[in-house]
Design a protein around this nucleic acid. Sequence first.
DNA 1: CTCGTTTGTAACTATATAGTTAGTTAAAGG
DNA 2: CCTTTAACTAACTATATAGTTACAAACGAG
Lengths: 212, 212
Amino acid sequence: MPGEAKPTAVTRNPERTRARVLEAARNAFASHGLAGARVDAIAEASGANKRMIYYYFTDKEGLFLATLEQIYAELSAASGTLDLDAPPAQALARYIDFVWAYYLDHPDTVTILNSENLHGGCHLKRSDKVADLGRPFVDKLGLLLRRGAEAGVFRPDLDPVTIHITVTAMTYFFLGNNTTLSVFFGRNLASAKARRDWRQHIQASVKAIVAA
Amino acid sequence: MPGEAKPTAVTRNPERTRARVLEAARNAFASHGLAGARVDAIAEASGANKRMIYYYFTDKEGLFLATLEQIYAELSAASGTLDLDAPPAQALARYIDFVWAYYLDHPDTVTILNSENLHGGCHLKRSDKVADLGRPFVDKLGLLLRRGAEAGVFRPDLDPVTIHITVTAMTYFFLGNNTTLSVFFGRNLASAKARRDWRQHIQASVKAIVAA
DNA sequence: CTCGTTTGTAACTATATAGTTAGTTAAAGG
DNA sequence: CCTTTAACTAACTATATAGTTACAAACGAG
């Protein structure tokens, strides 16, 4: 008989339930992709009843979208704390280190964004929370590039979006494709040294790209 | 009753069956990922009986590995045709255009490699056909970089693997993450102009990176 | 020609999966 | 208190899914 619920002493906390489901969903989607993740597993890992997932997020795709939005919100929030108030060359180095450290510390972000791209960005396009969320980041970088140009150390024709994609590309691709690259080149790119070297390479490369 | 097969006039052709299955598998894995692809759909699309897929590839993961190996074999074969016998700066530009054109023409490669990276490269690691397959490519690029260094136009300390990953990162990330990037920056990065501009940016960037 | 092996087929199965049904219980407003 | 609503639960279902069974026809070696 359904509905013969035991008298649970659980104090209600919708926010907490939502948050726990989102956290479990994030792990699941990051590990197995959208299709590979199991709603049952997410329910169990979060301790929430499966019905609540549908109650809060409508369906699996709704949950995936919420996960995406959370990932972007965190990225955006983190970038807000980035302080580029320093001499241009130094600020640029700080900016690159920030991007590198962010993706190194948030590998979930890489795999989940890859999943969304696999599906042609169809979830993200439906979101009203993500569009143009990179704007503050780009503005911040744009300001730095202008300062550098005025100081005569950076080229004057630099586009912040292009530079940001460049830095992200070198970071994201190296980290996200680390295993296949290691096999393809017969070289361990996951070692601490390989990572240090690559971070250094991004620094030197971007420096060369923006140099006046 | 099973086994009451109609007298089919199908002439046998195992190679063709295998090839058709692989082609269908590639499309399916590229569109939906490993978990999202359906063996039934692959069987139907290829015209092969589902049983044959298991006969040839053991299971879904075996089929995925075969797809991966095919992808790498094609990449390797294509890179074999790349002619870098030209003055260093010109040869480098030709090399970059090759990488760019390859991934632009083979979007499946990007999504399938992303799927394999999602799973930590576990299939590829079991393969005996892919390890170090990038060697000829790297050797070819290494020769070019040395020629350029000797001619005094490139830096003398360049590592071909690093340069190759750099070029691939800028190509692969831009193309593979095009949709999420477009949303995040509120800018259409899929247009013909955006692509032309980006290709040009890779050219200029790598030139700056390798410059003596 | 014949007998084992390879290539092929249709129908089947056990199970996993997204999504539901039909309720119960905590809490907030009046 | 009492009523209404939001938060929550166990058990269920229809279907999709990877993988099998049991056979048959083509092929090739001897």
